[in-house]
Design a protein around this nucleic acid. Structure first.
Lengths: 371, 371
DNA sequence: ATACTTAATTCAAGTTACTTGAGTTAACAA
DNA sequence: TTGTTAACTCAAGTAACTTGAATTAAGTAT
């Protein structure tokens, strides 16, 4: 439905295998609920002109929250997937009794500011760094929220917010965002490599997100790309994350006396062709190439998207420097999409992804993916 | 349903969220079709004794075919997943006009020999080596069937056999077999590493097989575990497959003048503690450890199963020598299953997997996985 | 202009796969 | 013997569809 818009009822019926009558009934309900609206008639062809229906962007909205150790990011997406609100709230700590009220008031503020009615709230998508429930034999990641260990996060938020809640990690949320509004709008099977503090992987197969048996799918940051390499916080050596993450860039630059407060600074350094940064990018690309090659071989995706909290220019620099094997299942003739492409990026990507999950869920024929 | 057997109707209703009445209607139909049968009453508790229903193993059956360049393997599974027939037919070549009639007569023979009625045939699962539709820039694998390139395999077989057909690669078929009859009967999310001529990966998530965008999911044999390592037929260097496959064992042994005609010979060599073989196992285990660690990080599975056309003793030797990182999402406290376990193996594994796919499909609430 | 042709849409009447609620049956327990 | 418990059946209802026969409103050919 979302793909080709606007569309007539008979057209919708053909594309989703229902009878015209069924579509007619459904559109009637959706129109009454304000989720669909008539946007004209289709003329120019024979036959009775088709009444064209379109998603009503104002019909409903979803809130996305990214919870991090030091801050809270909030975004609102309308039904069409357009971002109509963004905000960041600093946090002393992210423990439940601090974070939950902060989230509640952030959502209230967001809804008021963007002039919406809470009745039209489809749900809240919460993005939190994983992994969850893992043995603490290895040291813990900086981005982790230990206070939430053992908490049934979805339940807690559903009780607190009194609406539908989905909890996911940043990479999966970003992947879904890409499908709802981004470059993957018409791609059913793809991988998304997410640059956060560390590195995450979100995979969509046939339009559905992969979650793993324990919700820890996609810990790609800790696959080892260099045996006996740099020591990682996880206790192993040579993890991808130690070469190709924001944190690793920060470290490399600091070793040469360069401070890296934020992504903007990185963009500037790249524009200035800073040799230390270029060197880091070169190394990171080598390791990313390995990871991408593994993903291609395992998932056979239509494409692999790179995005997240990393400047677009840096992501483009990675892609330009990738060195992917030629003898791969991904190296088909007649490709329509490149093997690796850039996706959405920026500080708000994960929060937008959170909201996108809700939109995706209400839009996609759910085969019990969540619930 | 399959999990806890036998069961009363009210019990089934509770476990699958339907009303008792609905289950009653459904069991009535299934009993008339001979797929279910009454196996007694449950007494010992209060209330009216529940009529216990069980799957009728004789109610239906499925055929599995493994097509290889030199041979055709055929197996029949009854509805309960028990293998009731196995056969191997040598083939001059596996081109369609040779293979299709051979398959047709193999199936007829199988049905006759095992005393079944074709009416009860649920379908045929065909297992063929991939990858399909890949650019031929790299050299081709020994196991590949070039004559089938560009053929709509499922269509061709449905037309020829006039019944439901599923086509899959060996690793996925083996994974499904493990779920239908094997060690994964109650595991919803797991990875299966399949030792064939090369090396394949099948992944089941939430009970559904992963297929990839172009049907080439799971080419794990060609992930690179040693940069600049041994030359592989795919054109790259250091592929896992060059260290940990039957073909690589054969090569290693031949370099030392030892001939390896079949799996049985390998078992004997292992029992004799042949140093060349032990050396190969040691090396293979190192590379497998890397692959397994990657799979754990990416898929967050309940377990990883090793199986296929490799003797059980060799698989156990691999598992004993694995060296898996401690700091992994897979290293949870309170694990109920080991991180890596052995699965079914042997010459007939893939063909049995083919039949298992059919059983799985008719048994599992299909959310449009196939079709 | 008039009479086809084409295609979208509606109306009314099934059909399927369930659920709901009110019994009925048969074991175990006090 | 009289409850209590739980499985099961019967009859009626309902949601979400499909089917087939009109109806409507273009565009097209004569």
């Amino acid at each position: 439905m979302r793909a080709k818009e606007p569309a007539g009822r008979a057209e919708i019926a053909r594309s989703c295998g229902l009878s015209v009558q069924a579509v007619s009934n459904i559109t009637e309900v959706l129109e009454n609920d304000g989720l669909l609206r008539v946007v004209g008639q289709k003329t120019g062809v024979r036959g009775k002109p088709a009444t064209q229906y379109s998603i009503n962007p104002e019909g409903a909205f979803a809130v996305g929250i990214e919870l991090r150790p030091d801050a809270l990011i909030c975004a609102i997406l309308n039904l069409k997937g357009e971002c109509i609100y963004k905000a960041r709230v600093a946090l002393d700590n992210a423990a439940p009794d601090m974070a939950i009220p902060a989230i509640e008031s952030a959502i209230s503020l967001a809804i008021t500011t963007s002039n919406r009615d809470r009745v039209q709230l489809l749900g809240v998508g919460i993005v939190m760094p994983g992994p969850f429930g893992v043995s603490s034999q290895g040291a813990h990641d900086d981005a982790i929220l230990p206070e939430w260990d053992g908490v049934n996060i979805q339940q807690v938020f559903e009780d607190a917010l009194k609406c539908a809640v989905i909890v996911e990690n940043d990479a999966t949320a970003a992947a879904i965002a890409e499908r709802v509004t981004g470059v993957a709008a018409s791609i059913d099977t793809f991988c998304f490599i997410y640059f956060g503090t560390g590195l995450g992987l979100g995979v969509i197969t046939d339009g559905h997100a992969q979650r793993g048996a324990f919700g820890n799918f996609g810990e790609i940051g800790h696959i080892i790309t260099q045996a006996g390499g740099t020591q990682c916080v996880c206790g192993n050596n040579g993890c991808l994350e130690t070469y190709a993450s924001r944190l690793s860039a920060k470290r490399s630059l600091e070793e040469h006396g360069i401070n890296l407060p934020d992504g903007f600074a990185m963009e500037t350094l790249l524009a200035d062709e800073n040799p230390v940064l270029l060197d880091w990018i070169e190394t990171a690309s080598t390791h990313l190439s390995q990871a991408i090659s593994i993903l291609e071989n395992i998932f056979d995706p239509e494409t692999i998207i790179l995005g997240g909290a990393m400047p677009d220019t840096v992501i483009d620099a990675f892609i330009a420097r990738l060195n992917l094997p030629v003898g791969s299942v991904a190296n088909r003739e007649n490709r329509t999409i490149a093997r690796v492409i850039g996706g959405s990026s920026g500080r708000f990507t994960a929060a937008i992804g959170g909201a996108a999950m809700i939109i995706h869920n209400t839009t996609t024929p759910s085969l019990a993916l969540y619930n």
